[in-house]
Design a protein around this nucleic acid. Structure first.
Length: 481
DNA sequence: TTAGGGTTAG
């Protein structure tokens, strides 16, 4: 019988999805047969099954193929994909020429499918042209199109634009929320991401697994262990703990929040660990000074047939560097280029260096001592008391890290003001004996404070570089510092 | 019927 339009489209879609399955016996020819048997076809017939996520993941169809087909249907869009000319004027001119009927066929579906390609290639100029078109033809209220736009802008580091799109979307579903929250978190706007997450909870939105894997990195980066634990409980109640995205993000969160053993326990329980899971664990071990574990994990990962990417290589090279393992480091460096074909990047970026320097000079460098803490004087007394005991135990101050141009006595005084030792003194005086004190610092601990902490106690300090487990006058970083 | 969101970094 003649294949009816929507039935035919549905069949094509089915064959396309079957084709994307591993070792599928279905192929292009099955789709073709249905397509050829249809007396009436539309744009949908051409695209059925082609733009689905399953197909993209399986790479059954490349981004370029999608674009080529898209341009076949809408030749006016060609300029948007392969040249610098503006799409907007072309759209208008082809509508004027009476070609508007074809554009009317361009339903929102294609735009929500095409935008992720610009997100992937980080091409905000082309993404914006599509956005203009979306507005002109009133597709912007569609949740699919809007979440594609949110994602495109945030992948291009334009979070403000993402949030703007989110705010003007009249109806929001879980994917709209996840898109904007993930956008904030991926662009290091962790507080904003958490605020939106809480607002989503207040709005009684039912969370999905993606909601958790999107927000968890915020807890990891902010070292907010309590919040991370609450989310972990939530995850267990939802039964999402077998999701590899979520378990990898939990490994990372617990490692960054100081619980390396819990991180390892979660990692060991992951079924179907992928490269990201391994890399998160490798970095976690390194963060805690267990470089040898990082190396054995890396080797084990390779044995399991998982090919490391540039992030995994960065992780293992960092581990070698922290443990002063020069031979291993060189071996991995050679493997990186020879076996894995990874080239060096970043490096010698003068433009970036200039931007950073400009920012640094905008900061008031003289303004470092903040004395506003209500127990400022008590903390001073506690530090003085600790110092006396430390000096009896053999502590000698090291003022080499004090950059100010003052005499040695002044420098010694400046060291008293360092936030890490003040935090420890405050922790000791305000908690019962035996309480775990967690100190989180946003810059690297100073070398003298590092010595001081070794004298004070069995203590764990996390600075911007790593965890320092101080015990019996030794530190887990092996004084690599 | 076709379409949108997620984990790892020096």
């Amino acid at each position: 019988m003649d294949i009816h339009l929507t039935t035919g489209n549905a069949l094509i879609n089915m064959y396309a999805k079957l084709q994307s399955l591993a070792e599928s016996e279905w192929g292009e020819s099955d789709r073709r047969k249905v397509f050829d048997g249809m007396s009436e076809r539309t744009v949908d017939s051409l695209f059925a099954g082609q733009l689905s996520k399953e197909n993209k993941d399986a790479q059954a169809i490349s981004a370029n193929t999608v674009l080529r087909r898209f341009v076949d249907i809408f030749p006016q869009l060609g300029s948007c994909f392969d040249s610098r000319s503006r799409i907007g004027s072309r759209v208008d001119s082809c509508v004027k020429k009476g070609d508007g009927k074809r554009w009317a066929e361009a339903r929102h579906i294609y735009f929500s499918a095409i935008l992720p390609i610009f997100a992937q290639y980080v091409d905000v100029a082309k993404g914006k042209e599509i956005h203009g078109y979306v507005i002109r033809y009133s597709f912007e209220k569609d949740m699919y199109v809007s979440s594609s736009l949110i994602n495109m802008y945030s992948r291009c580091s334009r979070v403000e634009d993402s949030i703007r799109v989110f705010k003007v979307t009249p109806q929001r579903d879980i994917i709209s929320w996840n898109s904007v929250i993930a956008g904030c978190v991926q662009n290091s706007m962790f507080d904003k991401g958490l605020r939106l997450f809480r607002q989503m909870l207040r709005d009684n939105v039912i969370l999905g697994s993606v909601s958790f894997s999107s927000i968890m990195p915020a807890c990891a980066h902010l070292t907010t262990l309590n919040l991370g634990k609450q989310l972990h409980g939530y995850i267990l109640r939802c039964g999402f703990d077998d999701n590899v995205f979520i378990s990898s993000s939990l490994v990372d969160m617990y490692a960054k929040c100081g619980h390396i053993r819990i991180a390892r326990w979660i990692f060991d329980g992951i079924k179907g660990r992928d490269m990201v899971s391994w890399t998160a664990m490798i970095m976690g071990c390194d963060l805690h000074g267990y470089a040898q574990d990082s190396i054995s994990l890396f080797e084990q990962m390779k044995l399991e047939g998982i090919r490391p990417n540039h992030v995994a290589l960065a992780a293992i090279l960092t581990a070698c560097s922290h443990a002063s393992m020069i031979d291993e480091g060189r071996r991995y460096f050679d493997q990186m280029t020879e076996e894995y074909g990874i080239r060096l990047g970043v490096h010698k970026n003068v433009d970036l260096a200039e931007k950073v320097v400009t920012k640094i000079f905008e900061i008031d460098l003289e303004n470092t001592d903040d004395q506003s803490h209500p127990q400022h004087d008590e903390i001073n007394d506690a530090i003085r008391e600790l110092l006396e005991k430390m000096e009896q135990a053999g502590y000698v101050d090291d003022t080499s890290e004090v950059p100010h141009n003052v005499d040695d006595e002044q420098k010694k005084y400046l060291l008293y003001g360092h936030s890490e030792r003040r935090a420890i003194a405050f922790g000791i005086m305000s908690t019962p004996a035996g309480t775990t004190i967690r100190v989180i610092k946003n810059i690297r601990v100073c070398v003298d404070c590092h010595t001081v902490i070794k004298f004070i106690s069995e203590i764990v300090v996390r600075d911007n570089s790593r965890f320092h487990h101080f015990r019996d006058g030794e530190c887990s970083c092996g004084d690599y510092w």
